[in-house]
């Protein structure tokens, strides 16, 4: 393939990644405002942090071509991929320990996991 075709294909690929990533980003940010409580908002933030962020980074990688910039973007993507679940888990666990429970909880098996007390004891 000649360079012009490759550039066109890269542009199309990054356009698709930007569109899908941007849509997920906006939906996630909208969900962060719309959903009723902190537990459901965790999932909206998850949409922004995973699909939205990674797809936009992939789109930028297509724009950059094969260079050092791509490597740096890939590093940022890998870092977000590893840390965003940890941060989400930290927020969820802190809210759980603080005694905040989801509204209209359909099924609750937390007693099964952490024993009789619904409040775990902490030794700082």
């Amino acid at each position: 393939m000649d360079p012009v075709t490759i550039e066109l294909l890269l542009n199309i690929a990054s356009g698709i990644a930007f569109t899908v990533g941007g849509v997920f980003l906006l939906i996630g940010a909208f969900g962060l405002v719309r959903l009723p409580d902190v537990w459901s908002r965790l999932h909206a933030a998850g949409v922004v942090d995973t699909v939205g962020a990674e797809l936009i980074l992939v789109g930028m990688m297509f724009q950059a071509g094969f260079s050092q910039t791509t490597l740096k973007l890939a590093l940022i993507g890998l870092f977000l991929f590893v840390t965003s679940p940890t941060a989400t888990h930290a927020v969820a666990n802190a809210a759980f320990v603080a005694g905040i429970r989801p509204v209209r909880l359909r099924r609750n098996e937390s007693g099964e996991v952490i024993g009789e007390s619904s409040h775990k004891e902490f030794q700082p």
Binding site: L26, A29, F30, R41
Partner: peptide, 27 residues
């Protein structure tokens, strides 16, 4: 998206909503 997240950051209501919003804001 940043503006939407900022709404949640100021509206709260709990600390954990705000921390979550700050984390998303950072991303």
């Amino acid at each position: 998206a940043v503006l939407l997240v900022l709404i949640r950051l100021f509206a709260g209501p709990t600390l954990y909503d705000r921390v979550l919003a700050v984390n998303t804001f950072g991303t």
